[in-house]
């Protein structure tokens, strides 16, 4: 019978029988691509050394993933783009002058320890790239806080070391910053383009925003975390960021939110690291709380802490709260409210 012959070819599986085109691999590679404009600007300002550092991070990240998965006998997933992304993000968070062992160690900690030791993609609690960065910052504080002027590619000379704008703002105040950059408008413009000292991929706000725009447009990220994060930073910077130039005393409602928004690792962190699916809450309401928390901690560190920059620690700290937020903000099923009213 013909029907019997056909039977053997039938494939049986559980519904649904169609799936969307979206895949983890596609998402990861899109995020990688979205970071390229900012990386390009980093190389433009800090020279080929920036590219070298980033490439070393990426290679080490992929090698670490391969190594751990091979040893553990797990499926090799290096082509899904997530180890690449961790390496790329770590690289963009390093100074272009970082000696070679920093990218290697940072990537190893990020991928082998933070991600794979917890069970691989989807199971890690902390953002791998940020743990990698925190590790190298604590281990090699000097190398990790030596910044060069963003002129390497332009002059070909060895660039002079300098402080980051946030560092200057913290140690010497706004006046000093304005002296270096000329007018306030000029300061904003330079920060926006990324012509300033800092981690190699964090400086160019415009390039980062282009990438963020792509991700928002593709709905790979939503506004909830970045906007609540940035909004909180802006409000706190405005309320508590002002100082009397003479006495150095706090003047309320006199801070400059724009400087805070445009400098440090805030834009990179808010759009590309505080939005890492695995380590942030899944429910939108929880994401807003997460974003506000990140903003609070960032400004606490920037204004009161020992470091000029706090984005990294803010996100990592909030990563700890993710399970708690998620557990307490379960969604209410359809029709739930009505039922209570009816009682």
């Amino acid at each position: 019978m013909e029907a019997v012959k056909k039977e053997r070819e039938l494939i049986v599986s559980v519904s649904p029988h169609i799936r969307s085109e979206e895949s983890v691999t596609k998402i990861m590679w899109t995020v990688n691509i979205a970071l390229l404009p900012a990386l390009f600007m980093g190389v433009y300002f800090f020279g080929l050394r920036a590219l070298f550092v980033t490439a070393l991070c990426i290679i080490s990240a992929i090698a670490s993933e391969w190594l751990v998965q091979k040893m553990a006998g797990r499926e090799i997933t290096i082509s899904d783009g997530s180890a690449f992304l961790t390496g790329l993000l770590l690289g963009m968070n390093l100074p272009a002058t970082a000696p070679f062992y920093i990218p290697i160690m940072g990537s190893f900690i990020a991928v082998a320890i933070t991600k794979q030791l917890f069970g691989g993609l989807g199971f890690n609690i902390f953002n791998p790239a940020l743990i990698g960065r925190a590790f190298v910052l604590i281990t090699w504080p000097r190398a990790m806080t030596t910044w060069i002027e963003p002129t390497a590619a332009l002059t070909g000379l060895d660039a002079k070391t300098t402080a980051t704008p946030l560092g200057i703002l913290k140690e010497e105040g706004l006046e000093q910053l304005l002296e270096i950059f000329g007018t306030k408008m000029n300061l904003y413009a330079e920060l926006f383009v990324g012509h300033r000292a800092g981690s190699l991929g964090e400086t160019s706000v415009i390039a980062l925003l282009i990438g963020a725009g792509i991700l928002l447009y593709k709905r790979y990220i939503t506004w909830h975390i970045p906007f609540s994060f940035l909004g909180t930073v802006a409000v706190l910077a405005w309320v508590f960021g002002g100082k009397d130039p003479e006495t150095g005393k706090l003047v309320l409602f006199a801070g400059d939110p724009l400087i805070h928004l445009l400098s440090g690792g805030l834009i990179l962190g808010a759009f590309f690291m505080a939005t890492d699916y695995v380590t942030v809450p899944t429910v939108r309401k929880g994401q807003i709380i997460f974003g506000i928390g990140c903003g609070l901690i960032t400004m606490l560190i920037r204004l009161k802490g020992g470091y000029p920059e706090g984005v990294m620690f803010a996100i990592l700290l909030m990563n700890c709260f993710t399970p708690l937020i998620d557990r307490n903000l379960k969604t209410k099923p359809f029709g739930f409210v009505k039922k209570k009213e009816g009682k």
Binding site: E22, V24, I27, G119, G120, L121, G122, F123, Y277, V278, V280, T282, V283, R284, Q287
Partner: peptide, 9 residues
Amino acid sequence: YKPCIRCGR
């Protein structure tokens, strides 16, 4: 299939 990456979709 792969582990949940908690994307929230």
